Amino acid sequence: MALPGRFCSSTRCWTGGGESISAIGSSSTKRQTGSTATGEGEIPEGVVERIPLLLVGRKERAVTPADVTVVVPTLDEREGIGKVLDDLKQEGFDNILVIDGYSRDGTVDIAKSKGAEVLQQQGTGKAGALATALAEVQTPYVLVMDGDGTYRAADAHRLLAHAIDHDLVIGGRTNGTENIPFVNRIGNWLISKAFKLLFGTAITDVLSGMYLLRTQKIREVQLTSTSFDVEVEIACAMAANGEITQVPISYQKRLGKQKLRTRDGTRILSTLFWMANYFNPVLLYGVITSLAAIPAAGILLWVLYQRFVVGVWHSGYALFGVMLFLLASQAAAVSLVSLLIKRSEQRLFRQL
């Protein structure tokens, strides 16, 4: 006969009166013995054993530097590349792949002297460097890191800690933001806000130059970017069809000449717009249409002013303003529904 209640020894707990139970963690088991004794180490007949979390555990092992290939895109980075490679080696990263964009300042020689594998990139810009690296990488994860000394190799371990559950882990620059040029800081803020609005993902540093990718997942993405907008394209693809997160990291003063130009901000915004058009067009055009609320408010305020101050009633303008306001309201509602559906899809994706 099954024994009701809960029984505990110094190492285990059991519950009686049930056929199955959800154990702490991800699995459970039911064991019975022919004995009715309840001594230490014995399970009473008809009770279910709860396996402690430490006994169940997670099957996935932690991601280590041996599982990662560090990809360092370079173009005339002689001031910083040596320090970057030394720091990576010190942190246990031995799989280092430097993708050089045909530097003319001795960057390649410095990288080779540090023991790194160096490849000349195909294509142009940072996107070309990443595409070249993905054709060579043999590890399950790829860590992309700029070669200008702005990122700390020690922070890479923070990204590795979340690699199992995510396809993209971005290093969000929360410490040392004063080292980011002001114009780029404003552009990054605007782009990150637009990214959150379009994809419903709370990423505050879409343009970070340090991020960890699951190799298999990024190879499924057909990159079309040709410049620094590759980070935006990757983040959009992972937010739409994968798991993405962000961890805080530090940002140091750049060693060498600044590569990102002001006009690249316009290019990144353009890429963000077209990627949103591809991954979530309903939300994008719903947001654009909802902007009709701005002229609608202006028209209606003007009509009210004319009616109560001047004493003239403009029925045509009033009707037009109301129609615009209704259009904006409906577009906003459609955008909200689209966002909720997208988040539901993401939750379903996680469960599968």
Results as ranks from 00 to 15, higher is better:
309 V>N: 05
101 G>H: 15
247 V>R: 03
101 G>E: 15
157 H>L: 08
229 D>V: 03
76 D>P: 07
114 K>L: 04
270 S>P: 00
71 V>K: 04
300 L>C: 11
221 V>E: 01
302 W>Y: 13
334 V>F: 08
229 D>L: 00
230 V>T: 12
194 A>L: 14
232 V>G: 05
293 A>K: 00
64 T>C: 02
321 G>I: 02
225 S>D: 00
11 T>Y: 10
157 H>T: 05
196 K>N: 14
184 N>L: 15
236 C>Y: 04
76 D>G: 07
33 T>Q: 03
164 I>Q: 01
152 R>Q: 10
213 L>S: 01
332 A>G: 03
169 V>Q: 01
146 D>M: 10
13 C>Q: 13
235 A>H: 00
318 A>G: 06
195 F>W: 07
295 P>N: 06
297 A>C: 10
55 L>G: 07
108 V>S: 02
66 A>P: 02
8 C>G: 13
193 K>L: 12
61 R>E: 11
213 L>Q: 00
99 I>R: 00
147 G>V: 03
330 Q>D: 08
73 P>V: 15
111 A>I: 01
254 R>I: 10
329 S>V: 13
245 T>C: 06
264 D>E: 09
296 A>V: 12
160 L>H: 00
67 D>C: 00
62 A>F: 06
339 L>C: 11
200 G>W: 02
91 E>C: 04
282 V>T: 12
95 N>R: 04
126 K>V: 14
13 C>S: 05
195 F>T: 02
324 L>I: 03
158 R>C: 02
323 M>A: 15
222 Q>N: 09
107 T>P: 13
328 A>K: 00
237 A>C: 02
228 F>G: 04
170 I>N: 01
252 Q>W: 13
343 R>F: 07
105 D>C: 09
12 R>K: 14
162 H>Y: 02
30 K>M: 09
311 G>P: 07
73 P>Y: 15
136 E>D: 11
341 I>M: 12
302 W>A: 07
14 W>H: 13
294 I>P: 08
220 E>H: 06
279 F>R: 02
66 A>G: 01
124 T>V: 14
25 G>T: 07
231 E>M: 04
240 A>C: 05
106 G>H: 09
331 A>G: 08
248 P>R: 03
49 E>S: 13
179 N>W: 06
175 N>S: 10
107 T>L: 07
193 K>I: 08
101 G>Q: 15
129 A>S: 14
156 A>S: 14
217 K>S: 04
317 Y>R: 06
299 I>K: 00
101 G>N: 15
81 I>P: 01
212 L>Q: 01
18 G>A: 15
263 R>C: 08
329 S>E: 11
36 T>R: 11
178 E>Y: 11
128 G>F: 07
95 N>S: 10
189 W>H: 14
314 H>G: 00
93 F>C: 10
329 S>I: 11
266 T>P: 05
179 N>Y: 12
140 P>K: 13
270 S>V: 08
160 L>G: 01
322 V>C: 08
200 G>T: 06
115 G>P: 01
83 K>N: 11
14 W>L: 12
132 T>M: 09
337 V>G: 08
85 L>T: 03
227 S>N: 14
116 A>Y: 09
300 L>N: 07
327 L>P: 06
344 S>W: 15
236 C>N: 01
286 G>V: 02
311 G>S: 04
